[in-house]
Write a protein that binds this DNA or RNA. Structure first.
Length: 966
DNA sequence: GAGTTTGAAACT
DNA sequence: CAGTTTCAAACTC
């Protein structure tokens, strides 16, 4: 089953994978894939993506054109993103070329590079020896099927080639790295170039020796750089599989892909190698990341096993690969995240925020475009891809991040953006890290995630789960944070991004690695610490990754299951029985999810909605918008009869939100706000001058202060009180007086940095922060903040400028001013842009996952406004917290007015219309506005819309394009 | 840890 | 749409 599931949509949206998954496949996926593959035209998504200005733009930039055709054929199996195919070739080529060039790169890369090179060479050599490499390169097609076949059916093959497998795997990675490193000159996209590069590589060196050493070096390398390249490879292999499955793959594609694979895979393990790569890839829509992740894991394992003979190690790795197809996903996710982190790390190492220490590139440089292509390509991919992307926010995001990360050093522009998006949080972390703050930021991120989980239905928490390694954890957490922010509700993105990692187990957010740890991990990635850490986490029992469900009868495929409802895969901590909410059954999960959503579009939507106090004139912009956590309300309200809304039976109470008029509860005594008080609260708020984020009246003994400061005070004093919105942005604003548009309402935009630490001061004393409740609140706040940040980042991303501007820190608040909202049309045009951000673009999904944007894309986040307006119970506007926002809502093309979804309560939730505009990103679905930095050369694609879209995979289904289109 | 309570989700 | 059943979390002992 697992294997099949792995295959499913991801690898092969095409029939093969699907058929395999028969039980519960994503109907979407199949059609999508098929459409994309068999009938590209039919697959509007793919076509659109390609057609999209962005796509064309990108294509024009690079010679990859041939690939385009391929993309259709390719489509990532799972993801179905033809783009991937395109990407990989490009990337590979570049990577390869670059690989050769590495020396050029800054020392940071050098270290890894040197090692990589050697390894790479060795691997190459092996390939040559096997003689397959050349053949493979030349004739990828034949291989593709094999790979596919192998990946699905013959995991054992790996076992057959234990030795080679690991090496091969690494080899692949190395190559990839090379590609990444080479980022400067990415130009060579032509197949011929690729071949040449490969050939060169092969020729360049060759002595494969100690896999172990290689692993070490590679690990280091991986940590530092790589991810992009890896991503490419992974993707490639996967694609072939998918295609093969479909049988639609164009030879071209295969060829392109194969070269890599062939090169990567030693002859011996051709299959095995493929399997690995494929597994990773297949497991993920975002293959690359996956591959990295796997590689990382492998590396880890190998490291652990180093002492042991290679065979054992490789076998273990292989076994792992095979046995845990689900894990693979998880791993891949990790990898992705890791990639992002690695990027960050790399960037840090390089010292260039831009990530291009030595790579001065114009943001728009071809390389960038290439990068974009890779991303964009993916996005344009078929529905399945989109879905997957959406689903896998993390995937893309990670990939992106990864890709970018890898490239990051190279490219300032997109990479930066991507990095920014992804990294934005990351960067903050990085900065922190290096500054000593990193930990905080990271932890915050994780908290963020966790917070989401705990509070809202959203899922994020799990993200943290995964990793074996602290690194992973960190990455995961980060990714998760992104993911959470991004998509709470785009299932797949969410799942893949967040959930999968979870399987591996999350670390408690708390325990996430500190900076030192993180750094260490990067360096010592493979080393034993991982296990220990993991144990710790487990021991702590805080695996935030999952909800710890205990489902007995629902198989965790119903909303009864907290994990499922949150868009999280069940993890070890769960005591569920017959659980299908696992990566292995991704298809089933997705399908089920869809079914549920079909019944209730908002089923996975965030339950907690931000109520827009008053004239929603400016949520972000104007003074008016003072929405704060406190203003949150349960979307549907509760129906408590006996608990008086004072126990966790009450969803409102559980979410730390007050009851609203929408609640049907009886004898409400909700501590956070009672039914009848809600309106009062509003009034108070209004009176208070909006300073406030006053919640409903509380017994807290807090007193509202009419003055602006009152808000803070209240927050300070209120035990439960939601953490006030962070000032970080404000601060930044203060300093710069940046554009108020986005940041003016500093409160609303908490800086990532502000995170817990920052927040605590504002909102509460440290002691309070320590308080579980407060902690949660903080987390939540952080999450929100992160979302906001991400959003900002996204904007930055769009710019292609350095992350710095948008950095969570608000380092460059100035940028904000530059932001401008573009008409939807533009935004829509961006379908490709969405592509840019795999996660985002499509309108997809992050379903629960955070509809928001895929981590990858944090950028996605941008697109999606974190706040979504909806009609309140009272008829008042609500803002759906990003985390809470259902992907569907975001992505789903809706009537301009609103999507009216009847909630169980019978209340309708609609997306805000008019106001949506206010939030540039706000529902992409609605407005499809683009946020563009004036200064930035506009990439056609990047737009909030795309971002928002990307959030929900589901949305993608519904109509990513449509929404985007307008 | 087992059993009960509770309210959401699912079903009719 | 309302009522009932099912379910799993929350809670109690």
């Amino acid at each position: 089953m697992q294997e099949e599931h792995h295959h499913f949509c991801h690898r092969t949206s095409s029939g093969v994978g699907v058929s395999d998954n028969a039980p519960s496949e994503f109907s979407e996926c199949k059609p999508t894939t098929n459409d994309s593959i068999s009938s590209p035209p039919s697959s509007s998504d793919l076509l659109e993506g390609q057609e999209s200005p962005v796509f064309s733009y990108i294509s024009n930039l690079s010679p990859i054109k041939p690939d385009k055709a391929a993309p259709i054929a390719q489509g990532f199996p799972g993801i179905n993103s033809p783009p991937l195919v395109i990407r990989s070739p490009q990337i590979n080529i570049n990577s390869q070329q670059t690989f050769l060039r590495r020396p050029q790169f800054p020392g940071s890369s050098d270290v890894g590079l040197s090692g990589q090179d050697e390894n790479f060479e060795a691997s190459v050599t092996v390939a040559e020896e096997s003689g397959k490499s050349s053949s493979h390169l030349s004739s990828g097609l034949g291989i593709c099927p094999d790979k596919t076949f192998v990946s699905k059916n013959s995991p054992p093959e790996k076992a057959s080639c234990p030795q080679g497998s690991a090496d091969d795997y690494w080899t692949e990675i190395v190559i990839m790295d090379g590609g990444d490193s080479s980022s400067e000159n990415l130009t060579p996209k032509n197949p011929g170039d690729i071949f040449q590069s490969q050939t060169d590589l092969l020729d360049s060196k060759g002595s494969v020796d100690n896999s172990e050493e290689k692993y070490d070096n590679r690990k280091d390398e991986m940590n530092m750089e790589t991810s992009p390249a890896i991503l490419v490879q992974a993707e490639e292999p996967v694609e072939p599989n998918e295609k093969s499955g479909d049988g639609n793959m164009p030879p071209d594609i295969c060829t392109k892909i194969e070269p890599k694979t062939s090169v990567d895979h030693a002859p011996d393990n051709h299959h095995g190698g493929h399997l690995k790569a494929e597994d990773a890839g297949s497991g993920h829509k975002f293959v690359g990341s996956t591959s990295q992740l796997e590689s990382l894991q492998i590396a880890e394992e190998c490291g652990s096993c180093r002492e042991n003979a290679r065979g054992p190690c490789t076998q273990a790795v292989e076994n792992k690969m095979q046995d845990h197809s689900p894990k693979v996903h998880g791993i891949s996710r990790r990898l992705q995240f890791e990639d992002a982190q690695s990027k960050i790390m790399a960037n840090i190492a390089f010292g260039n925020s831009s990530g291009s220490a030595g790579y001065p590139r114009s943001p728009v440089s071809p390389s960038d475009s290439e990068v974009l292509e890779s991303t964009s390509l993916k996005k344009p991919a078929s529905r399945c891809n989109r879905l997957l992307e959406n689903m896998t926010l993390p995937k893309f995001s990670p990939q992106n991040s990864g890709a970018y990360s890898v490239k990051a050093p190279k490219r300032s522009g997109i990479d930066l953006h991507l990095n920014t998006s992804v990294n934005s949080s990351m960067k903050s972390a990085e900065r922190d890290t290096f500054d000593g703050q990193g930990k905080k930021s990271i932890s915050i991120m994780s908290h963020h995630l966790h917070k989401n989980c705990s509070i809202s239905s959203n899922v994020v928490e799990d993200v943290s789960v995964s990793s074996d390694d602290s690194r992973h954890d960190t990455h995961a957490s980060i990714a998760a944070s992104f993911a959470t922010s991004l998509s709470p509700y785009g299932m797949k993105p969410f799942y893949e991004a967040v959930l999968k990692p979870i399987e591996f187990q999350a670390y408690p957010s708390h325990k996430r690695m500190s900076n030192s740890e993180t750094s260490d991990n990067y360096e010592d990635f493979g080393q034993s610490s991982l296990k220990n850490k993991r144990k710790k986490t487990l021991d702590d029992g805080e695996s935030y990754g999952c909800k710890h469900c205990n489902c007995k009868k629902t198989k965790c495929l119903k909303l009864y299951c907290d994990c499922f409802a949150a868009g999280i895969y069940c993890a070890e901590p769960c005591a569920c029985e017959g659980c299908f909410n696992r990566p292995e059954y991704e298809d089933t999960v997705f399908e089920t999810r869809q079914q549920i959503e079909s019944r209730n579009a908002l089923a996975f939507a965030p339950k907690i909605v931000q109520h827009i106090p008053e004239p929603p004139t400016n949520i972000f912009l104007g003074d008016g918008g003072h929405f704060t956590p406190s203003s949150k309300r349960h979307k549907r309200g509760c129906s408590c009869k006996k608990s008086k809304c004072l126990k966790k039976y009450c969803e409102c109470y559980q979410a730390d939100v007050g009851c609203s008029d929408g609640c049907r509860c009886e004898a409400c005594e909700n501590f956070y706000g009672q039914k009848g008080d809600y309106g009062k609260t509003k009034v108070l708020v209004s009176k208070s001058d909006s300073s406030g984020t006053l919640d409903s009246s509380f017994d807290m003994g807090l007193e509202m202060v009419a003055s602006k400061d009152g808000l803070l005070q209240k927050e300070l004093y209120n035990p439960h009180n939601m953490i006030p919105l962070t000032p970080s942005f404000q601060c930044s604003n203060h300093g710069k007086g940046g554009s108020k548009a986005w940041f003016s309402s500093g409160r609303h935009l908490p800086s990532p940095e502000s995170a817990i630490t920052s927040i605590a001061p504002y909102g509460m004393s440290l002691g309070q922060a320590t308080n579980p409740d407060n902690h949660n609140m903080i987390l939540e706040t952080n999450r929100e903040i992160m979302d906001l940040v991400s959003f900002n980042q996204d904007l930055g991303y769009a710019n292609g400028h350095s992350v710095n501007q948008f950095s969570p820190r608000c380092d460059a608040p100035s940028n904000t001013g530059h932001l401008t909202a573009l008409p939807n049309s533009q935004g829509c045009a961006n379908n490709s842009s969405a592509q840019m951000f795999p996660g985002n673009c499509h309108v997809s999904s992050t379903s629960s996952l955070r509809w928001r944007s895929s981590p990858i894309t944090t950028s996605t986040n941008f697109g999606e406004s974190k706040l979504h307006e909806a009609v309140d119970f009272d008829g008042g506007p609500y803002r759906i917290m990003d985390d809470d926002i259902p992907e569907i809502l975001k992505e789903t093309p809706r009537p301009p007015n609103a999507v009216n979804v009847s909630s169980p309560n019978k209340k309708r939730v609609s997306l805000p219309h008019g106001r949506g505009t206010e939030l540039g990103s706000s529902s992409s679905a609605r407005n499809c506005r683009k946020l563009v930095f004036q200064g930035v050369p506009s990439f056609p694609p990047f737009t909030p819309c795309g971002v928002s879209r990307g959030d929900s995979s589901q949305n993608a289904k519904y109509s990513q394009n449509s929404s985007c289109s307008n």
